[in-house]
């Protein structure tokens, strides 16, 4: 089933300067989509449009078969969660507890049920010991975990990660990635759209969407997209480490075409 369908989307912040040009694509339920491209290629704008944070100018967005309009935006928004890049600027509550509660309050969840929900989702991201801590006492990774809990608590069907790990250190990045995979495992119907610069993450996703200058440059499974390495090089996009290595080895007439991972590569080289 298609959970998200974007048709002929064009958008610009200024007239005659479109950031997105006539974009169309569909996303199936339960998929892990990686949205890649350079800074300024329109990725974040696309995410904001899908989440209903920007007004549509031309083209349509359908969420679960329903056309996104001014009227149903608040209803459809409940199905879409978004985790932003800056850990500080999306922490709204005074403490972890209050921050997770914020979305619940907006959704008019009765007071009696809140504590149970807060505890449940804080546990999912391992933040139970920090419930009464203020954001200044938390690391960037911990703040992003709270943001994830806050979004999950609202029970969305699609979650967008807008470079959610870009400002974190390697440990924080790894943690967040693990939590994303864990929640995907717990609920297979959950659809994830990850805007990322991490080419390895894109390589491990279900589907890759490459945006360049506001247009869809490539689209398909990672195998399909990364097979076309010359096309990716054309727009100067990074390749996964394994592919770069294979590429360079092939240039030296070392045949490693069929290997699927680093282990196989090492074995093949040492044959």
């Amino acid at each position: 089933m298609s959970v998200l369908s974007v048709k002929n989307l064009t958008f610009g912040y200024e007239k005659d300067k479109p950031v997105l040009k006539n974009i169309s694509f569909q996303i199936e339920q339960g998929k892990y989509i990686a949205l890649i491209g350079h800074n300024g290629s329109g990725k974040s704008t696309l995410a904001k449009l899908i989440a209903g944070l920007l007004e549509l100018q031309s083209g349509t967005i359908e969420v679960f078969g329903e056309l996104l309009t001014d009227k149903n935006i608040s209803v459809l928004r409940q199905k879409i969660g978004i985790v932003f890049q800056n850990p500080d600027n999306q922490f709204i509550g005074a403490t972890v507890r209050d921050d997770i509660a914020f979305g619940l309050e907006n959704n008019c969840v009765p007071h009696k049920e809140m504590d149970a929900i807060i505890n449940e989702f804080a546990e999912k991201v391992n933040m139970t010991d920090f419930l009464d801590k203020e954001p200044t006492r938390l690391s960037g990774g911990q703040k992003q975990r709270v943001a994830i809990a806050g979004v999950l608590a609202m029970n969305p069907k699609i979650i967008i990660f807008d470079e959610a790990t870009a400002m974190l250190d390697p440990k924080g990045k790894k943690e967040i990635r693990e939590y994303i995979l864990k929640m995907k495992k717990e609920d297979e119907s959950l659809t994830i759209i990850s805007i990322t610069h991490d080419i390895e993450e894109a390589y491990n996703s279900d589907e890759v969407l490459v945006l360049n200058n506001g247009e869809i440059f490539l689209k398909g499974t990672p195998e399909e997209v990364f097979k076309d390495k010359n096309k990716l090089k054309e727009i100067d996009l990074d390749l996964p480490f394994l592919m770069k290595l294979k590429d360079k080895l092939s240039d030296c007439d070392i045949d490693v075409k069929d290997v699927k991972n680093l282990e196989e590569l090492v074995n093949k080289l040492c044959q």
Partner: peptide, 21 residues
């Protein structure tokens, strides 16, 4: 990993992808 598998590689020479290859 390659060294473990028996390949002769001078680790001091390795700086980046090109030198590895």
């Amino acid at each position: 990993e390659l060294i473990k598998k028996g390949m002769k590689i001078d680790l001091t020479k390795i700086k980046n992808l090109d030198t590895l290859v």
